[in-house]
């Protein structure tokens, strides 16, 4: 991949410099992706290790955090293994992982129907990975759980990826700030900067709902009423439109109106709907307080 191509693709100079002068010596890059919510992904073959790898570049800005380095020490069959991570110039950083052949859950959902058993199995796997992050010795919050950030290996085993929003919650604190990415998956309390363990549970609840076939449009204009649409199109620019959509989605999530149980297939019975409702309850105190409690309910389904 020629480095000038990266410039044409809109990659920042910091990343181009890193690829050209550092990573490019050991890695033959041949593909890229913009599916990650807050970064750039390059794929290639590592010349020395002789394996396919993926490099996720992201901008952490002033919010430098050591969490990705901590993640390097965590091993779980449901967490994408970080092979290497470091910062580069001007607030950018990257981490290197193996390339996962199955692609992400978003693409999979776009091309496949997932039955009840697979949906439950995949969600159990996601919860296993999150439980490892939340473990008392780690206390890491993912903050950006959504289908695009979950990869599937060849056995449909889910691997949680994209750790650019990872944040450690100190022992003496109950909350951290919410991530600013993916407005659709932001739990209501994150707007108050009260993001906690059960906030990750909310996001997994939405993923479970989607896996079962629940309607959750990625076209943000679909969430507007007719009068809201008129207001929206009067707005002067993309920034104002984006802020307006954020407010609409915030209101819908606060009222528990993002999920539509009627959009679920017939085989999603009341007990399963209750699990979805509890996991995505707008009130964090009425949600599963931990990923392991959510996991228990899925285990009881059999």
């Amino acid at each position: 991949m020629k480095f000038m191509d990266l410039k044409d693709l809109g990659f920042p100079n910091e990343i181009i410099n890193c690829v050209e002068h550092d990573l490019g010596k050991d890695i033959d890059f041949d593909a890229c992706s913009f599916k990650g919510s807050n970064g750039y992904i390059l794929f290639g073959e590592h010349n020395i290790q002789k394996k396919r790898i993926a490099i996720k570049f992201y901008y952490y800005g002033e919010d430098y955090h050591d969490e990705v380095r901590l993640l390097n020490q965590i091993k779980s069959p449901n967490l994408l293994t970080i092979m290497h991570a470091r910062t580069i110039e001007n607030g950018y950083a990257y981490f290197i992982t193996e390339e996962v052949i199955g692609g992400d859950l978003d693409s999979f959902l776009g091309h496949n129907r997932i039955g009840l058993k697979s949906a439950v199995s995949i969600t159990k796997g996601i919860l296993n990975g999150v439980i490892e992050l939340h473990k008392d010795t780690n206390r890491l919050l993912h903050r950006d759980l959504k289908p695009a950030n979950i990869l599937l290996d060849s056995n449909q085993n889910p691997l949680i990826a994209d750790f650019g929003s990872l944040k450690r919650i100190p022992e003496d604190q109950k909350y951290v700030t919410g991530s600013k990415h993916a407005a659709l998956y932001r739990p209501p309390e994150s707007h108050l900067d009260e993001y906690s363990f059960c906030s990750d549970v909310y996001q997994i609840g939405l993923v479970f709902y989607q896996l079962l076939g629940g309607y959750l449009s990625y076209n943000e204009e679909d969430y507007l009423t007719n009068s809201q649409r008129k207001e929206y199109f009067k707005l002067p620019g993309d920034f104002e439109k984006s802020k307006y959509i954020d407010q609409i989605l915030k209101s819908l999530s606060e009222r528990g109106k993002l999920t539509q149980m009627k959009s679920l297939p017939y085989f999603v019975n009341k007990p399963i709907q209750r699990i979805i409702s509890k996991a995505t309850n707008p009130d964090p105190d009425r949600r599963y307080s931990s990923a392991s409690e959510f996991r228990l309910k899925l285990h009881e389904l059999g």
Binding site: L127, N128, I131, K135, D136, T137, S290, A291, S292, R295
Partner: peptide, 12 residues
């Protein structure tokens, strides 16, 4: 196994 071990880990 995953559920109960996960519970232990979650609770510390």
């Amino acid at each position: 196994r995953d559920t109960i071990i996960g519970f232990f880990n979650n609770m510390g």
